[in-house]
């Protein structure tokens, strides 16, 4: 039988209350949101917090809204909620693509967006998707809030810039214009499993089909901050053709650092990285063109 070891439990009523509790209980306290990463880790003694601060009762962190030219996703938004959000998918189909392949429907009912980001698992899909989108994380402390690019959010495996007395409250994604499209591609051993490799692509194209900006997110393959800046640099200024996307995939594959594990050897993961990056770019470009023609794909 797997049960967590002894732990204290506090229910936060508001963001301010959560910050007060986090300050009072110190660095051995952990925020409990959906619990779908933390509780399994506590069962295995990979995490042994002294106190859990349950934030599920905080209202106002579960909304998906658009304001000031940004898509805003509350940290307590559940995966299933983001998957079902027409607003989120309308602006950034990469989010729906990624959510469709995260865990399973029941886990998606309760696991949260903020929890996934803060868990900072190297195979976590949303870190790659939000990295590709150049999203901003809003982190609240007792003295105010700060905005941190998702590309600077992770310090390493299972480690983020969120300090012990801070709370991630929101993800914000600047809304791009009509010439943009995005997609996510993942290969896993079976439905609901972590990625063997995954790639997200965000493209902005000029009217003549030149790539003006690109975001490439990679999960599970040891890409620094879940992105491939080398592939992005390669793409900028290039024509949006399948040949170029193929080359960009190769660049992404060369610059990532996968580790061999039970999900596969290094060369296989590198191959997948290239292929999935290329596929995601192709699909993102198709979406840009469809959008220009008033369609959704």
């Amino acid at each position: 039988m797997q049960v967590p070891s002894h732990v204290e439990y506090e229910k936060a009523k508001s963001v301010e209350h959560a910050l007060e509790l986090l300050t009072r209980f110190g660095p051995e306290a952990r925020v409990l949101a959906g619990g779908h990463s933390l509780i399994p880790m506590m069962k295995l003694r990979l995490a042994q917090p002294e106190t859990l601060i349950d934030i599920n009762g905080i209202s106002g962190l579960s909304r998906i809204t658009v304001a000031d030219g940004e898509l805003r996703i509350g940290a307590l938004v559940r995966h299933g909620q983001l998957l079902a959000s027409a607003v989120a998918a309308g602006h950034f189909p990469v989010l729906r693509d990624a959510e469709q392949v995260i865990a399973d429907p029941i886990v998606r009912n309760w696991g949260t967006i903020g929890g996934s980001l803060c868990q900072a698992d190297p195979s976590e899909d949303l870190s790659a998707a939000f990295g590709a989108l150049r999203a901003i994380a809003v982190i609240q402390g007792r003295d105010g809030s700060r905005r941190v690019p998702v590309r600077e959010f992770h310090l390493g495996p299972y480690e983020t810039v969120v300090a012990p007395a801070e709370l991630l409250t929101e993800l914000r994604v600047p809304i791009a214009g009509d010439g943009s499209g995005s997609a996510y591609e993942k290969v896993s051993r079976r439905v609901g499993d972590w990625s063997i490799a995954a790639a997200g692509a965000v493209l902005t194209l000029s009217s003549d089909g030149t790539v003006t900006e690109a975001g490439i997110g990679l999960a599970a393959v040891g890409a620094g901050h879940f992105v491939s800046t080398a592939a992005e640099d390669f793409l900028r200024g290039q024509p949006a053709t399948d040949a170029v996307f193929g080359q960009a995939g190769q660049v992404a594959a060369e610059h990532c650092q996968p580790a061999a594990d039970q999900r596969g050897p290094v060369d296989y993961k590198r191959h997948l990285t290239g292929e999935l990056t290329t596929r995601a770019l192709r699909r993102a470009a198709i979406r840009v063109r469809a959008r220009a023609g008033g369609q959704t794909v």
């Binding site: 509780i39 349950d54 029941i106 309760w110």
Partner: peptide
Amino acid sequence: VLWLDGTPLKSCTALAAM
């Protein structure tokens, strides 16, 4: 799996206190 507030949940991955 049971329902918590009308939504299916894997109850081995939630605390009773929640």
